[in-house]
Design a protein around this nucleic acid. Sequence first.
RNA 1: GCAGGGAUAGUGAAGUGGUUAAACACAUCAGACUGUAAAUCUGACGGCUCAGCCUUCGGGGGUUCGAAUCCCUCUCCCUGCA
Length: 295
Amino acid sequence: MKKQAPLICVVGQTATGKSSLALRIAQEWNGEIICADSWTIHREVNIGTAKPSMQEQSLVPHHLLDIIGPDEDFNAALFKELANKAIIDIIARGKLPIMVGGTGLYIDSVIYDYSFSAVGSRHSREELNALTLPELLEKIDNLGLELGSIDIRNKRRLIRLIETDGAQPTKGDLRDQTLLIGLHVENDKLKRHVTDRLDAMLASGLENEVRQLSERYGWNCEALKGIGYIQWREYFLGSENRDQVRQKIIQATINLAKRQNTWFQRNKSIHWFDTPVNWYEVVGLITTVLDNNIS
RNA sequence: GCAGGGAUAGUGAAGUGGUUAAACACAUCAGACUGUAAAUCUGACGGCUCAGCCUUCGGGGGUUCGAAUCCCUCUCCCUGCA
């Protein structure tokens, strides 16, 4: 039986240094990076998303960056498809694929081979969105759909259930030869990292980037709904000052980091590292996986 | 100095005599998560020897069967007049 080629994943909360670790791994083992991030896929949002710089991208090829416009939608199923293509392509060229990112759903869709149920065209999302929770439940009942184990207090879950005609999703085992490296930082330290990173973003012209994007695409634009962007709205309207924006961005980032951590912590296959990462341990871990593959 | 206003849990803020350990929001802690995921949703959130008990609404005193809510007084803060 033919063995699957190795895949290295670097996951974890935002601002833990995933990108730089991935870069180092890629340079050490002749790899290419696949970004599993729901925001860096958008073009034109660069500073606030902490997108890898052109300099970093010239060092190592990055995939799934800048693939859609700021006002275009994206989704996990699409990510899974594109990421799988990228992985196959990288392996075919004899290089090591390294998937890095903090969007847990995107990562899992690839490494656990999620079976996304097709979107039913009979119902428009806009129409369903307008319904209340009880109305959605009634509709589901009328359609004869099984609620299963979904959270019936979460409107989005109910809408999805209707859209998929109640199709039950499936999840596979962890992809063979896949190494999961998780980065974790303690709360206090994380807050410092987040703050420092934001101040660096501000120094490199975040405000200007947001202003230009909001003028060109308007505040309803997808990419401007992200952290680091949406918080400027009141500022440009004149009701808040720069420091309030800064505090709001820090807070939103910390809140996100908490949710990301909850997602990844339940995955018992992840090898966790505290930062700063002990490089030799990483080398040891990766070497084991790669050697195992050769034999 | 005089006249008003105010002090409520980590923060903001409701409550103005009786299911009030005290709405709500935020923060915090924990959790869920398969075509929006940087999204969406859930629980806990005064203390304890925790299906019961104890202590809270600036401090002290009082009225009342009963007060964060009424009265007196003290402290501090804001506003108008001096």
